[in-house]
Structure formats: C-alpha cells, structure tokens
Amino acid sequence: MRSFDVPTLPVDLTAAIERAGYYPALVGDVVAAALAGEQVRSHLVHLETTFDHDVIRRHVTVLVLTPSRLVIAHADDHADEAAGASVTDGVGGAGASTDAELDSAAAGGQEVATATTESIPLSAVRGVMLTHVVSDPQNYVPGSLGRELTLTLGWGAVSRVDLLPATCGDPGCDADHGYDGTISSDDIALRVSATADGDVALQQAIGFAHALSASLGQ
C-alpha cells in the first residue's frame, strides 16, 4: 500500500485523539494532512456515541484552530453493504466465500470508516455560540457555568430559518401581516456534558470557544 508523508501533530492534540480511542491513527493522519504543518493554537476532540437499531456506533469530531483557519475533521463508520452483497454473490461458485466472510455479510457487511476534513478561513466564520445548561439555577454557584453546554459554530454552509407570524401591535387587529423571521448559521453543534464527558472536556470546550472567538476579526 502506498504511504504518504504526513506532518506530525502536536503532542497534546495527538494525546487527545488517542484518548478518544476512535481509530486514532486514521483520525490523526487526516487531521495532520488537513493542517499541512500549520501551527495549532487550540483544539477540541469530541467523541459521541449513538445507537443505530441494535448497533452502537461512535463518531469523533476534531476542531483545530490555526492562525488562519478553522479545521474540522469528522470520522464515523458504517457497514459496507456493497461489500456484503459481493460476498454473498460468490456463494457456491468459483472463489466461494469463507464462513467468516458470510457471517460478516449477514451482519450487514464489512465495516468502513469515513473521515472528512473541512478548512474554513477564519474570515468566513460568522459566529461562535455557547449555550449553557444549568440545573437548579436558584442555587447557581458563580463561576461554575453549569454542567453542560452546546458549542455551535456557523460559517454559512448551513442556515436555519425561524419564522413567526408578524403582528402590528394592535391586539384587536386580525389582518395578515405576513411573517417575521431570523436566519442563523448552524453548521456544527457539539454537546458536551461534564457528567458524560468529564469536567476536563467541558473546560476544554469552553477554552476552545474562547480561543476561536478571540481570533475572529483579527
């Protein structure tokens, strides 16, 4: 198999990817290839687990801030249905499939990982939004910022439109005034919970959001 010269990632970013434990060699290589040796100012690695019927699947998202770009890498896996079909097609004929291959096909096909990277110029990032979820707010401890947050980043690739019926302010008016609405960027949203992900992960998410916000408009 052909190999490529991939730049080395900073030690702390490599360690974070390895702690996530989701194909760390693959994720590290695609992130390094996207960075192309550019300096890393801040990073955030987020692992998410989802349930697909009776299958547990994991996804990892890596956000990296450089002096000029926001680099986003996302990796997940799925069953290769085409590979499963080709295995079953060979049953009983020349080059018949092995029992192990048939078992894999019956389970939904060979596992395939997909890793995608995107580079966004910092000048194109339109917003960094942090939504803090605070339980028992009447007893909120100053400086704690809650135990859960959602980090939402927007750069215009995906927009959300919220529409509400427009009014003129007259409670007795029943005329049609059309709609009022807002358009907001909602390209990526990561939910981080101290309970599920740990206090360190929560602090890292806040730190990355602060670093990215400070870099906008420079």
Rank of each mutant, 00 (worst) to 15 (best):
L145Y: 15
S119K: 06
Y140R: 11
G109T: 08
T167P: 03
P67E: 07
G172M: 11
L149W: 02
L202R: 14
G217Q: 04
Q203F: 05
S119R: 13
A106T: 10
V112F: 08
L190D: 05
A194E: 14
A96N: 04
R160E: 15
R41F: 05
A32F: 07
R160P: 06
S184G: 13
Y23A: 14
V31N: 05
C168Y: 04
H53F: 04
G84R: 06
P10N: 08
G198T: 06
V71Y: 05
T61I: 11
S68G: 08
H59A: 10
G127D: 12
T88K: 13
Q39D: 13
V128I: 12
E38Y: 02
T61C: 05
V27T: 11
T50I: 12
V31A: 15
G172P: 00
Y179W: 10
G92M: 10
I120A: 10
G217I: 10
V6M: 07
I183W: 02
I206D: 04
A211I: 00
Q204Y: 09
D103Y: 02
D89Q: 12
G169Q: 02
L13H: 09
G178R: 00
T195S: 06
P171V: 05
V64R: 04
A189D: 00
I17V: 09
S213L: 04
V27H: 07
Q203G: 12
C173R: 01
D12K: 01
E111D: 14
R2C: 04
L145C: 05
P142E: 10
G93P: 03
H53C: 04
D76T: 11
S42I: 02
S144D: 14
A94K: 02
D54L: 10
V161Y: 01
V31L: 09
D174A: 11
F208I: 03
A157Y: 08
G198Q: 03
S123E: 14
G108T: 05
E18L: 11
V141K: 12
D187H: 08
V112N: 08
D29N: 13
Y179M: 14
S97N: 01
L151S: 03
T8A: 15
A16H: 01
F4C: 03
I17D: 08
T117Y: 09
V158A: 05
V6K: 03
I188Y: 07
A175F: 10
T116H: 15
P165H: 12
L9S: 13
D12V: 06
V60M: 08
D197V: 02
T182R: 00
V71T: 13
R19F: 02
Q138C: 06
S185Y: 11
L190C: 02
H43S: 13
H46E: 04
A32K: 06
A82W: 09
D162H: 09
H59L: 09
Y22G: 08
